[in-house]
Design a protein around this nucleic acid. Sequence first.
RNA 1: GCCGUGGUGGCGGAAUUGGUAUACGCGACGGACUUAAAAUCCGUUGAAGGCAACUUCUUGUGGGUUCAAGUCCCACCCACGGUACCA
Length: 798
Amino acid sequence: MNQLYNHREIEKKWQDKWDNAQVFKSATNPKNKKYVLDMFPYPSGSGLHVGHPEGYTATDIYCRYLKMSGFDVMHPMGWDAFGLPAENYAIKMGVHPKVSTEQNIKNFTRQVKSFGFCYDWEREINTSSPEYYKWSQWFFLLLYKRGLVYKKKAPVNWCNSCNTVLANEQVVSGKCERCESEVVKKDLEQWFFKVTAYAEELLSNLEKLEWSDALKIMQRNWIGKSNGAEIDFQIKDSDKLIKVFTTRPDTLYGATYMVLAPEHSLVNELKDKIENFDEVAKYIEITNKKSELERTELNKEKTGVELKGILAINPVNQKQIPVYISDYVLGSYGTGAIMCVPAHDERDFEFAKKFNLPIIKVIESDEKFNENNAMELSGTMINSEEFNGMKSEEAKEKITRRANGKLTTQYKIRDWLVSRQRYWGAPIPIIYCDTCGTVPVPEKDLPVLLPDDISDFRPTGKSPLETSPSFKNVKCPICGKDARREYDTMDGFVDNSWYYYRYLDPKNEQEFCSKDNIKNWMPVDTYVGGSEHAVGHLVYSRFFTKVLRDAGYLDFDEPFLKLINQGLILGEDGQKMSKSRGNVVNPDEVVNEYGADSFRMYEMFMGPLEDSKPWSTDGIKGQRRFLDKVFQYFYNFQYGENKDDKLLNLLNKTIKKVSDDIENFRFNTAISSLMIYFRELSKFEKLSKEYIDNYIIMLSCFAPHLAEEIWEKLGNKDFVCLQNWPKYNAELARDEKIKLPIQINGKLRDTIEVDAEIDEEKLKQLILSREKIKKYADGHEVLKFIYVKNRICNIILK
RNA sequence: GCCGUGGUGGCGGAAUUGGUAUACGCGACGGACUUAAAAUCCGUUGAAGGCAACUUCUUGUGGGUUCAAGUCCCACCCACGGUACCA
């Protein structure tokens, strides 16, 4: 009689039991700590995506394994609840963001809990709660105190649909990462965090992290370090200078013109001297109207306008060269102005061709130099007076000195724009007083609460906080006179740049986290999440940690030692899951129909964690089938005294394989070995405890509910998740007899079972006397006999 | 364009890091059970040829190194991800 495995009953039962017994509570005084962190989710309105439990199952298996192996594990979960998605959802549904966020968190909690993950729920955090965002505001003040926050009017990314500014990291190929509308530039006064102050360290410390090379390279490119020189060009008949940054000071003798970014301040300063200012002004206006996307469009023909009447003087040879403005020069990088060497820079070359500017070669290289291209390699100097004949690399420093320039370094990374003209975020803790100016809110007055007396959260381009009378007016903390608060709120990324500290001390009202707790648990040993945060969250978190270190709160440099990026789970059609494609898989339905254990097993079995892979409903059925068989087998099983050497050998191999695989996050092959062992195991009716218990313990990481149920059925006390992880015995895992493949001239012709310790000469005799081999070998001379121990044998015949 | 990752059966993938390619799972086909279907169980399953034992071919393409290549080297093609005139 087949006994059905009732996942709904069993999973609920064990989740409650774990809860009541508080088995996943983390230690207060860890000796042997491991901090395993998941990227916490945005509690969006659409509920959990099947991609979430992929990473969460991976860390869950790992944590269960670590616990059973004797480690004190920190494994928390929480909600990244502030930010645009939560607010946009609330506006759409016509409710207060607080209400919808609470609903969503409730739903997410139910969903996450349905998988039986071993989180310590007492540490749950919610970034939109005042107890949490008080400390986000405190971080703002800490940075302010340390000179790492400033307010500046600057051209910033503006999303016309979300009606707010965006950080560079939130602009994806010229579009808003949230709503995909085109992003335009606007001149606005905004708050920035000075991430650039740590650019060099953010770059150099990457080396000591156990992150994938791909991810490190992404960060390296984002930080974008370039070594070069700053050189001043005097403007003729003026006391003004054009300062340029170049990575190729060696090409200075080849500079035939200069270009300023259209937004460069010199353009206005030189207004009176520019003979064609009308034309120039028109060009600037057209540029301003362009969206970021249009301006950076690929293969666009170069445009620009000469500043007539303006000439710059090359500091090395006093040559007078024309000055242009063009949108191929960015105002935000370097000095916003460049010297142009068309012979040795592709973009300058294109521009020079179009405007008929002279092209002077100053470097020769062995490589062939096509007349339709710029030669961008290094080589030997020519046309450069006393530097001729010198290696160009060597000339860089010498020419810089000759030009009175200085060697410098530039980074692509920009300071982090943190102001948002939206409601659902932590208010920026700043007060504006007519007498005292910009005044930070005193720490004792934190948190600055989000006001409740706002009815309309729709984005208008100005923060909705401005419409709240209770929020707006405040007394100046210094002089006590009437003042007003900053209306803008902070980017949600501010909240999630430090959440991994708060988990360690979530109820502390005096500090963001006590020093003891930081010492006990940080840094994070293993961090798992999607690669979409490669340059945003992961850069900001590293920045926050470095600031905390310099402020004396901690003594390490990096928050996340090891990082694993799980791949995307695609729809059954191989495309990215989306509502419009109709290929979204709802985890609730899957858990309800097949159970959390089947879901967990399936997602781990799909393939390597890091890979993107398509969902398959048949695939999850297969896992359910396997678990059914396991349940079936153990349902009526009773321990006996029976032993079997072959099975014991396989058990020890399986323990080794599964342990290694879990430590390296290779869960697909771990499950495969668990299946292979079960196939052999199930051939026996009775077996002694070790064949069974060790197996159930291993299985409990992957299918914890089922494993507990079987464990209990077999009459065992206590939870299976509190058992010790099995140790493998190398002696028992070794094979005495091995199957050896035999090749003749590299082709497989035979296999032979031999003693593992057989010596080569004996083996050779044995093999050459075999009928199958004789058939090939007779009449041929054996040129070579290759034996790779326990691997293969290859006979080379003449 | 540049940078990165990857191309293995009908599908997801495995391969001890240079040593029996296709483990494990899915699907498909055949059989058992059933009035029938589902579920379950047993068997077959890279391709081609042969009644057969067996033979030949096969890891994106083309070369190379080696006793031996999915794995190493060179060239190319394709897919995915990142980036976007960064001077």
